[in-house]
């Protein structure tokens, strides 16, 4: 399975700046109805996005329902975005909705990994810089688009030109749309040897 590489992206961004937006908020458990990675986009932020939990009538007060944020593909978020449950459904829902990148001061660790495994770019940026970008975006969301260049590790919004750091492994995977399993399988001989060695080193793990 190969993924769409992430090299550069420019798009409408929506600020969702409150801290600790958890994966239950990104996709409520009740929206995870099928044994499938697909069909989750509709459930994205369902708790805030719709007027009632049972219906699909958009709540106009929710940012992604506002005309200015149509075709949003970047989220500007607060600290610890994606904390909580490990559910990868959160990332599948974001991806299906059309989100390519999330910019936040920090991320839930499992969530950030899940993003990379699915071709979404988590961009860590100091809180003040995220807030400054959000201020600029809010002036004219459809026109004030954010540009992200993963190769250069640069994010641009108006006069703000910022650099970000990303773990080199994640960067490499995203830039090339790599499938982690296939990549690891190239090291099969080393893994197999380690496995055999471990069987003799800790035999009790293999006896019961």
């Amino acid at each position: 399975m190969s993924l769409e590489p992430f090299v550069q992206w420019r798009g409408v961004a929506a600020p969702l700046l409150r801290p600790n937006i958890d994966t239950d908020a990104i996709i409520p458990s009740r929206e995870m109805k099928r044994v499938s990675k697909a069909g989750l986009g509709e459930g994205l932020f369902a708790g805030e996005r719709y007027v009632s939990a049972s219906g699909r009538e958009p709540d106009p007060s929710f940012i992604l329902n506002q005309p200015g944020f149509r075709d949003c593909s970047i989220i500007l978020a607060g600290p610890n975005f994606g904390c909580g449950s490990s559910r990868e459904h959160a990332v599948w829902a974001l991806k299906e909705y059309g989100i390519r990148s999330i910019v936040a001061p920090s991320f839930g660790a499992i969530f950030a990994n899940n993003c990379v495994r699915n071709g979404l770019l988590p961009v860590p940026l100091p809180q003040q810089q995220v807030e400054d970008l959000a201020d600029w975006v809010l002036e004219a969301p459809q026109n004030h688009r954010i540009a992200i260049d993963l190769e250069q590790q640069r994010i641009t919004g108006g006069s703000q030109e910022l650099t970000f750091t990303i773990e080199s492994g994640a960067r490499h995977m995203l830039l090339n749309g790599l499938d982690a399993i296939a990549l690891t399988q190239t090291r099969w001989e080393v893994i197999e040897a380690f496995h055999q060695n471990r069987r003799s080193l800790r035999p009790w793990l293999y006896e019961s």
Binding site: S86, R87, E88, I110, N113, N114, R117, N118, A180, I181
Partner: peptide, 10 residues
């Protein structure tokens, strides 16, 4: 430690 589904596949 806890992981996502893709990592579980891995």
């Amino acid at each position: 430690w806890g992981i996502g589904s893709s990592e579980a596949e891995h």
